[in-house]
Design a protein around this nucleic acid. Structure first.
Length: 578
RNA sequence: GCCCCUGUAGCUCAGUGGACAGAGCGGCAGCCUUCUAAGCUGAUGGUCGCAGGUUCGAGUCCUGCCAGGGGCACCA
C-alpha cells in the first residue's frame, strides 16, 4: 500500500539532486524538510516546505520561490499527482488526480479488513506493557487510561506489521498485599461481631466489605482462626479475576502476565546486581551520594534509614542527569522495587523485543529514566525501550475535584464507568486526549453527554453505511456493478481523500507514540467528512440516476470498511444499527 | 527549595517550526416527502498565561516570571 507522503518525499529529494546535477542549484546537503497535509483545502492535498528549508543552506535566502520553481521542473512523473504549484513564500502544493482517487475505492474494497495493513515492521517483535496494577483493588480510571493507550498502541503496531505482545506486570507479594489481607480479615471479623483491629492505612474501599460478605456466605465463621495470608490469597484471587473481567469488557486482553516474583525466583535480580557491581556502578553506604550543589530538601527519611545500616546504591548520577543516587538493596538485605524492575527489563530485552513500550503514570517518570539509562549502561540499545508517560486523571463530581486513591476507597472504577456510559465511550474518552494532558474527568458531564458523544458520531457514520447497504439489498442493487469513474462530485472525492489518510495517521500515531491522534482524526476528519458527503451525495434518492447510485453504493461500501477498520484499531465496536 | 509536565474560545480539549489558530459541548439562526436528524449548514465566540529572545517564519524552540499537577523513600 502506497503512502503518498513518503513517496512524495523521495520524489522531492530526487528533484533536488537532479537540479544540483543540472547546475540549477548549488551543492549542499539536503536539509530536513516536510511533506504535510495543508490545513486549507485550496492549498492542495500535500505540501512541502522543502524550498523554504533549502534557502539558507543554499545561500539563497529570500529566493525560496525561485528554488521551488527549480524543484518543480525536476520532479519525476507520478501516477497520482494531478497538479503541482507554488504558493505563499515558496510552498510546493500537490493535488491528487481524480482518477487516482477514484481507483482507490476499488482498492479499498479489494483489501477489505486488511485496508491500512502495512508491512513496515514485518518480522519485528514488539511488546507493550500497561496497567500493571497490583491486585489490591478494582481498577481506577487512571490505570485504565494507561491500559487503553497501551492496547490501542498495540493494535496500531500490529497494523504496521509488528508481532505484538500485550503484557501486564504485577506483584502479589509484599507489604501492600499483606495490608490487603489484614483489611479483609478485619472486615470479616467485624461482620461476624468478633473483635477486630483495622490495620493502619488499610484498604477502606467498599469492595473489601463485599469480599468479607462472600467469605461469610461460603465459610460462616470457619475462618476466624485463619491467618492474614488466607485472606490475602482470597482477596488476590478475586480482585485479579475482577480486574481481568473489567479489562475484557473494554476489549483489553493481555497476552502475558509477568509476576515480579519471577525475577526473584530465577535469581536474575542478583545477577543484574552483580553485573552492575562489576561495572563499578554500585556502592554500599549509609546514605546516597548527591550533587553537592543540588538544592535538595534535607531528607529526614534518608537520615532515619541510615540508622539501620548500609544499603547498596547505584551510581545513577554517573549514567544520567540526576541529583541523587538510588537504593537497590536495603540495609536488611532486601531489594527495593528498583532492582527487580531492572531485572524485569533486562528480561524483556533478552526476550528479543525490537521495541518495548511501557505505559506509565507521571509519578513513575524518574523510574522510567533510571531503567532506561541502566539498560544502556548494561550494554543494551536504549532505543529498544520507550515510554509513554501519561498525566493523571482527576475526577470531578458535583463541581468538586478529588484525587483518586485506591487505599482510601476514593475512586471511580472502570465498571462503574462502563455501566454508566458504555465500554466504547470509556475507551474513546480516555483515548482521545494526548497522554501529556492532565485530564479532568467530569463524571456529571460524562453521564449527561452520553447521548451527545463523539463516539456516537463516529459509530453513526458506520451505521449509516450499513443502512445504505441494507436499502440496496432490498432493491436488489449491487455495488459490484458501480463504476468509480462516476464519482466526480467534490464531496465524493473529499471522502476518498480522507479515507486514504488512515495509513498516514497510523504511522504518525506510532512514530510519535501518541495513539490519541487516531481518535481525533476518526472524529474530526473521517467521520465528519463522511457525514458531509452523506448529506450531499445521496445514493438512492429518486433524483439519482442508477449508474451514479451504484457508484455511490460502492463509495459507501468502501467507507464502511475504513470506518470499521478505524473503530477496530481503537478497540471500539462498529454497530450495524443504533 | 530543586526537577518534570501543563497553561489555546464560556467548558473539555486538538494543533508536524510554516500559509487567515481548530473541534466537540453550551448558546444563537436555519435545514427532514425518499439511505436512522445520534446528522448537515451559517453566524458568534481568541491579547494561544505574562515578558523577552532565536528564525525568512513561533501556539510550537530558548531564557525568565506567574499559576495548576506530579516527583525529589532503604514505598510500589
Amino acid at each position: 500500500m502506497k503512502r503518498i507522503a513518503n513517496d512524495l518525499a523521495s520524489a522531492i529529494e530526487q528533484a533536488v539532486r537532479q537540479a544540483q546535477q543540472a547546475g540549477d542549484l548549488p551543492h549542499f546537503e539536503i536539509p530536513p524538510f516536510k511533506v504535510s497535509r495543508p490545513s486549507r483545502v485550496d492549498h492542495g492535498d500535500y505540501a512541502t516546505n522543502a524550498a523554504l528549508q533549502i534557502q539558507s543552506v543554499a545561500g539563497m535566502k529570500g529566493q525560496s520561490r525561485a528554488i521551488a520553481e527549480m524543484l518543480m521542473r525536476h520532479l519525476p512523473e507520478s501516477d497520482y499527482v494531478d497538479s503541482v504549484d507554488i504558493a505563499g513564500p515558496g510552498f510546493i502544493n500537490f493535488r491528487l488526480s481524480d482518477s487516482w482517487l477514484q481507483a482507490q475505492v476499488d482498492l479499498i474494497l479489494a483489501e477489505g479488513d486488511r485496508f491500512a495493513q502495512m508491512d513496515d515492521f514485518v518480522g519485528k517483535k514488539a511488546q507493550v506493557e500497561c496497567v500493571s496494577a497490583n491486585p489490591t483493588g478494582p481498577l481506577t480510571v487512571g490505570r485504565v487510561r494507561g491500559g487503553i493507550i497501551g492496547d490501542t498502541l498495540a493494535r496500531l503496531l500490529r497494523s504496521m506489521g509488528y508481532a505484538v505482545e500485550l503484557e501486564y506486570y504485577f506483584n502479589n507479594a509484599g507489604a501492600q498485599m499483606r495490608k490487603l489481607g489484614e483489611s479483609l480479615q478485619a472486615r470479616y471479623c467485624e461482620r461476624l461481631g468478633l473483635d477486630f483491629t483495622f490495620p493502619d492505612k488499610g484498604y477502606q474501599g467498599e469492595y473489601i466489605g463485599d469480599l468479607a460478605e462472600s467469605l461469610i456466605q461460603d465459610n460462616g465463621d470457619g475462618l476466624k482462626e485463619s491467618s492474614w495470608e488466607v485472606f490475602k490469597n482470597f482477596a488476590e484471587e478475586h480482585i485479579f479475576h475482577m480486574i481481568r473481567n473489567s479489562l475484557t469488557r473494554i476489549g483489553i486482553e493481555f497476552d502475558t502476565f509477568f509476576n515480579e516474583n519471577t525475577v526473584y525466583e530465577d535469581g536474575s535480580i542478583w545477577n543484574v546486581l552483580e553485573d552492575l557491581s562489576g561495572r563499578g556502578l554500585t556502592y554500599k553506604a549509609l546514605a546516597p551520594e548527591r550533587d553537592p550543589d543540588a538544592d535538595l530538601r534535607p531528607d529526614q527519611d534518608d537520615l532515619d534509614a541510615a540508622a539501620t545500616g548500609e544499603a547498596t546504591w547505584i551510581r545513577i548520577r554517573q549514567i544520567r542527569d540526576a541529583k541523587k543516587d538510588v537504593a537497590l538493596v536495603r540495609s536488611n538485605g532486601e531489594p527495593t522495587y528498583r532492582l527487580p524492575d531492572i531485572a524485569y527489563h533486562v528480561n524483556k530485552m533478552d526476550r528479543g523485543f525490537d521495541l518495548a513500550v511501557n505505559i506509565l503514570g507521571a509519578d513513575h517518570i524518574e523510574e522510567a529514566r533510571d531503567v532506561k539509562a541502566i539498560l544502556g549502561a548494561l550494554g543494551y540499545d536504549q532505543n529498544r525501550l520507550q515510554h509513554i508517560i501519561h498525566q493523571f486523571v482527576t475526577l470531578t463530581e458535583n463541581s468538586k475535584t478529588k484525587r483518586m486513591s485506591t487505599r482510601k476507597g476514593e475512586f471511580v472504577t472502570l465498571d462503574e464507568l462502563a455501566n454508566e456510559v458504555g465500554a466504547d465511550a470509556v475507551r474513546y474518552f480516555l483515548l482521545k486526549h494526548a497522554p501529556n494532558t492532565h485530564m479532568d474527568f467530569d463524571l456529571d458531564l460524562a453521564r449527561q453527554q452520553s447521548n451527545e458523544n463523539p463516539v456516537y458520531y463516529i459509530q453513526n457514520a458506520h451505521v449509516r453505511c450499513s443502512g445504505i447497504a441494507r436499502q440496496a439489498d432490498e432493491r436488489n442493487l449491487s455495488f459490484a456493478l458501480g463504476n468509480v469513474e462516476l464519482l466526480t462530485d467534490p464531496a465524493e472525492l473529499s471522502l476518498i481523500r480522507k479515507m486514504m489518510e488512515l495509513p498516514e495517521v497510523i504511522e504518525r500515531s506510532v512514530q510519535e507514540l501518541e495513539p490519541h491522534k487516531i481518535a481525533i482524526w476518526a472524529h474530526e476528519e473521517l467521520a465528519h467528512s463522511f457525514h458531509q458527503t452523506y448529506e450531499e451525495a445521496r445514493a438512492m434518492h429518486s433524483d439519482v440516476p442508477e449508474a451514479l447510485a451504484l457508484a455511490r453504493l460502492k463509495l459507501y461500501a468502501a467507507a464502511k470498511i475504513v470506518l470499521k477498520r478505524t473503530l477496530t484499531l481503537m478497540g471500539m465496536s462498529a454497530p450495524e444499527s443504533m
